[in-house]
Design a protein around this nucleic acid. Structure first.
Lengths: 131, 131
DNA sequence: CAGAATCCTTTTTGATACTG
DNA sequence: CAGTATCAAAAAGGATTCTG
């Protein structure tokens, strides 16, 4: 896991962010937002607040471990707000922060585009021999 | 490497694409487009055609191996056009296809947004103790 | 319910060296 | 120049078990 502290330290003396620079902190954020599960969790949350188990059902295939880790990264980045209600059994809500909504505003269209373009992608695709 | 053939077979009997479904081919494409290097290569190519070595300089930190592999995936997906000129020494050009330009139209704004939002992200960030 | 901790397997990635 | 092949290291991911 890429820790927040790493990038935090780097960010101190950065002037203009540039993803093309090898150690620009923007690459870390890009990773969190576009990781295998990160993007899907963001898109799920873009449809409204969810509980932990609700997210697990929505983002099909994700393990508890990965969901917990992904949510922690997104929370540390300030994209997700976690609200734990002090009840038994536990009840925790996750929702996008305003910053998270801005990010989701870019991720959702990307994913919708992919879904829509799928026929064109596979229609003209060159099949490579399996390696 | 996720082979094209895998998803190709899956795509045959798919009605409506849905990234939330565990084995929807759209997840494979999303992976190619948002992998560690995939997004950066797409953004680099969005600025115009590049040669192999030009891309290596532009996308700083990428290894030859990863650049070659990333380009092959993007080409198989129909996002990138590879043109090899039969000369010595070899000269190969890479550029976005129209489909690739549509994808880039979503990726570029996402990355520009991250670069721009970086101060806000790190400004309000919660520093977690390193794990 | 919502995780944390542990163990273990699979993937990904990077260096390095080599080729047409 | 534009790759490929090989190997070792690192990271990601999953399954399972346990707890407040």
């Amino acid at each position: 896991m890429t820790t927040s502290a790493d990038a935090q330290a780097l960010f101190a003396h950065w002037k203009a962010a540039d993803v093309m620079a090898p150690d620009c902190p923007s690459r870390v954020i890009l990773q969190h937002l576009t990781s295998r599960w990160g993007a899907l969790v963001m898109v799920a949350l873009a449809m409204g607040p969810h509980r932990f188990s609700g997210l697990r059902r929505q983002v099909r295939g994700i393990s508890e471990r990965m969901l917990a880790q992904t949510l922690q990264e997104l929370e540390a980045d300030g994209f997700v707000l976690r609200t734990a209600h002090a009840v038994v059994p536990p009840h925790v809500d996750y929702e996008l922060t305003p910053l998270g909504q801005e990010a989701a505003a870019h991720l959702v269209p990307l994913i919708r585009w992919i879904e829509g373009a799928l026929p064109r992608i596979f229609g003209a695709r060159q099949v490579l021999a399996a390696v």
